[in-house]
Design a protein around this nucleic acid. Structure first.
Length: 280
RNA sequence: AUAGUGGGUCU
């Protein structure tokens, strides 16, 4: 079973769901019957492919065969519903878990909180955040980052930074994802200078921001009309940072065009060609 | 030994 499960998961992750199902059939013919892990992996693949109906059918099938979905199986389905914008259905599954006495763990709460954050229902997200702690679960960096991003999308930058502080108080360290979320939040709120400070801080504490993080900040400056600073950051990237990507150049092009600096925009286009970047 | 969760950029 382990061999098959590993293979099935591998195929699913690389986007070949049908091969995953073919292997499941092979297992059945070999009398190596699929277990909860097999089903969970396939259900997850279907969910990521937005085939929730199929995922639910598979859940029914595993139940019919006498297998009990566990916390991972349920969380997988909940995540699928959340990513499909159906937090309501996700909560129904959660109620089902409560009724059946299925273990409620950290990942489950992270998934639910993320679901509510994505639909900008921070009230519910908060409620779950509190609930998980009442159940003795310690929020981890994913929980906090999820909330930071949730507040950011809701336009509440202050709350996002309150979370950052709480995180520090709880002894949970920021990682590069958390930093990027904060940078993104600051840019969205028009606080580009703060965003740049975060970028610097991130590097000071030993993380390597990638091109996307830089590009967000560059875009922030460009949108403020400060294309110069954008270019300064570009030079910095070219010197010692991550390779600027096509989007980085597009951001700067856009900045120049918005200012009517078409000559410079043209120069930049030529520069892109010289650097071997193919404009899209 | 195998399954579930967070940020990521322009138009």
């Amino acid at each position: 079973v382990v061999s098959f499960n590993t293979l099935i998961n591998g195929y699913c992750k690389s986007g070949n769901i049908e091969e995953g199902f073919r292997l499941k059939k092979v297992m059945e013919e070999d009398k190596t019957f699929p277990d909860v892990l097999t089903y969970s992996a396939l259900i997850n693949a279907l969910c990521r492919d937005c085939r929730l109906e199929d995922a639910n059918r598979l859940l029914d099938e595993m139940c019919d065969r006498g297998l009990s979905p566990n916390n991972v199986t349920f969380t997988t389905l909940i995540n699928g519903q959340c990513n499909n914008g159906r937090v309501d259905l996700a909560m129904e599954i959660y109620q089902q878990m409560l009724r059946k006495g299925v273990k409620l763990d950290l990942v489950l709460y992270n998934v639910l909180i993320n679901g509510f954050c994505k639909v900008e229902n921070l009230k519910e997200a908060r409620k779950l955040f509190k609930e998980m702690q009442e159940r003795g679960l310690k929020p981890d960096k994913i929980t906090y980052t999820t909330l930071i991003d949730g507040y950011s999308k809701e336009g509440d930058l202050d709350s996002a930074f309150v979370i950052r502080r709480e995180m520090a108080e709880m002894g949970v360290e920021l990682d590069n994802v958390a930093y990027t979320a904060l940078i993104s939040a600051s840019c969205r709120a028009g606080k580009v200078v703060d965003a740049e400070k975060l970028l610097r801080e991130m590097m000071r504490v030993g993380f390597n921001p990638d091109a996307a993080s830089y590009t967000m900040v560059i875009d922030g400056f460009c949108k403020k009309g400060d294309v110069r600073t954008g270019f300064t950051l570009l030079e910095e990237m070219q010197r010692n940072g991550p390779r600027p990507g096509i989007v980085t150049y597009n951001v700067l092009m856009n900045g120049l065009c918005k200012k009517g600096q078409m000559k410079n925009a043209k120069v930049l286009l030529d520069a892109m060609h010289n650097l071997g970047i193919v404009p899209d």
